[in-house]
């Protein structure tokens, strides 16, 4: 009987703990978003963060996009040629990239590259009392430190995803025309004819905007809410990558169902 009650109590306690965390995460989000006016007065902070969140991820995203596009070219050619539809290879590559792989793979890589770095940075700032130090200098650490990082992440994600898709299409082109003998002109004209701006590109951008908000939010919250020890920071960093990956894949399903469902 008492084991049952203890179990129930533990369940309730961990449930409350989780709910509180979710509550804190939302409060933090509101506070970060509200810092935008303050941030626009010091655009240098945003630009510096765009560099460290965005520009430093460019190489990784570019190389990944190129390889994913090349694999799509190989696999797509193999399947399409069974139906003698090799000419539509360009459309297949471009549509998969713009609609799905661009936003999703970029977000997963972003969580691993930039998200974990954000968590570790903020977490260490907390552990070394830098955030309290800012508070004591009458500087709001949320507005000064977190807000520019949030907006930088949200702005960088669609740009990175666009680059991923563009390089992927190029990769597919090289493999298709160079290795497999698909006609280059057809590759491009098919893409131009069949990829719809609203249906494909806008929806892809919406996806990566959503992923940008979610991944950066998770990373910043995990850093800000970390237990201020080295172990705490290491756990938070891991949680950032795991939670971001799950959130991106889950949200991708929901968004895809909403956008392309009918």
């Amino acid at each position: 009987m008492s084991i049952l009650l203890d179990g129930l109590q533990a369940l309730g306690a961990s449930g409350m703990h989780t709910l509180r965390r979710i509550g804190r995460a939302h409060l933090l989000f509101v506070a970060m978003v509200g810092g935008v006016i303050d941030m626009l007065r010091k655009p240098g902070l945003l630009i510096a963060q765009l560099f460290s969140v965005g520009v430093l991820s460019v190489l990784l995203i570019a190389v990944a996009g190129l390889f994913v596009g090349m694999v799509l070219g190989l696999q797509g050619f193999y399947i399409l040629s069974q139906f003698s539809a090799e000419a539509t290879l360009g459309v297949m590559v471009a549509a998969s990239l713009v609609r799905e792989l661009g936003p999703v793979v970029t977000a997963l890589l972003f969580a691993g590259r930039a998200g974990s770095a954000l968590t570790a940075e903020i977490g260490l700032m907390k552990a070394t009392e830098q955030l309290s130090g800012l508070e004591m200098m009458a500087v709001d650490p949320i507005r000064r430190v977190l807000t520019p990082r949030l907006y930088a992440g949200v702005l960088a994600m669609p740009l990175l995803a666009a680059m991923f898709s563009a390089l992927g299409v190029l990769g597919g082109y090289f493999v298709g025309t160079g290795l497999l003998g698909v006609d280059g002109g057809t590759y491009w004209t098919q893409i131009a004819a069949k990829i719809d701006f609203n249906e494909d590109i806008v929806n892809g951008v919406i996806k990566s905007l959503v992923f940008g908000v979610v991944c950066t939010w998770i990373a910043l919250f995990q850093g800000y809410d970390t237990v201020p020890t080295s172990e705490g920071v290491s756990r938070s960093t891991t949680r950032t990558v795991v939670h971001s990956a799950l959130a991106v894949l889950g949200l991708d399903f929901v968004l895809t169902a909403l956008m392309f469902g009918n």
Partner: peptide
């Protein structure tokens, strides 16, 4: 409130045990 607290803190200095410099 927050704004008043920040105004008060501008008149207080605190030296943290760890220094708390921005790295």
């Amino acid at each position: 409130n927050r704004a008043e607290l920040y105004r008060l803190r501008m008149r207080m200095g605190m030296l943290f045990q760890s220094g708390a410099l921005l790295t």
